[in-house]
């Protein structure tokens, strides 16, 4: 399915999309398939399945912690793909790989992308793959596969650059809400709203999803006024800390929606 599954989603549903980020292997080694199933049942539109990384540079304390616990729990790439392939039999919502470029590079780009396709992954979000280096060195390889590649833009990204990144992206464009690592809370201020409005008015070729720091129903709804939807990560991970993580996951989605 690959690119098509994500495209269809954005064609069928014009707004209020909710995407949830989870860390594979957190809070338990076998949690990911169960969580994806629960989230799908609760009407979450697509999943960012984070492969934990030892050195997650763009992440704040919450995802650093979940990543480190997940690695201690024994999460690794082969188990990750196995769990994705397993849950792919049961759910039809798009599932994206989220991780760091070293994980792709170390496996071998071709081999990694093949494994993504085989497991039923629809696209990739790799925050430390810069558009320039991608174009110069890796675009040809990525193009061979039926996988969306989602790039990020931030409040410091110039308009010209936003257009360039929009052209490189497929699936959607990831609008980072503020200049911060993941999980930084706080209200949306006027400057954030102006930035979202600017993106909205640019009429990009890709749909836009706003992420980073979305931790309440109010912020989710605000984001949905300016973009096709929003992505929640750290706040979801934090909500999982109780014993019955599946129940808390379901309740979290109900609270946001």
């Amino acid at each position: 399915m690959g690119k098509q599954r994500l495209q269809q989603l954005f064609q069928q549903k014009k707004g209020n999309l909710l995407s949830i980020y989870l860390t594979a292997g957190y809070p338990r080694k076998d949690a990911m398939p169960l969580l994806i199933k629960t989230l799908a049942d609760k009407g979450v539109d697509f999943i960012e399945a984070g492969m934990p990384y030892s050195d997650p540079l763009a992440d704040g304390p919450t995802i650093q912690h979940s990543s480190s616990v997940a690695l201690q729990n024994g999460m690794n790439l082969s188990l990750y793909f196995k769990q994705i392939a397993q849950i792919r039999q049961e759910v039809d919502l798009p599932v994206l790989f989220m991780g760091y470029f070293n994980q792709v590079l170390r496996t071998g780009i071709d081999r990694f992308l093949q494994q993504c396709e085989t497991a039923g992954i629809d696209g990739l979000i790799i925050p430390d793959l810069s558009p320039e280096i991608y174009q110069a060195h890796y675009q040809k390889i990525f193009k061979k596969y039926d996988l969306s590649l989602i790039f990020l833009i931030s409040p410091t990204t110039s308009n010209e650059r936003i257009k360039m990144i929009d052209n490189l992206s497929s699936g959607f464009i990831y609008v980072v809400s503020s200049s911060a690592t993941t999980g930084k809370s706080g209200r949306f201020e006027e400057e954030h709203l102006q930035y979202f409005e600017k993106i909205r008015q640019m009429s990009l070729k890709n749909p836009a999803m706003i992420g980073f720091g979305i931790d309440s129903a109010e912020k989710y709804q605000t984001a949905c006024r300016y973009a096709h939807g929003a992505i929640i990560g750290s706040a979801f991970i934090k909500a999982l800390s109780s014993n019955d993580y599946l129940k808390s996951a379901g309740m979290f989605v109900e609270k946001i929606r």
Partner: peptide
């Protein structure tokens, strides 16, 4: 131009650092 010595180097940075770098 992109900061490589042979195959090594570059700037594999999140977009959030792009402007500064």
């Amino acid at each position: 131009q992109l900061g490589f010595y042979g195959r090594y180097g570059g700037a594999f940075i999140p977009e959030l650092l792009h402007k500064n770098i």
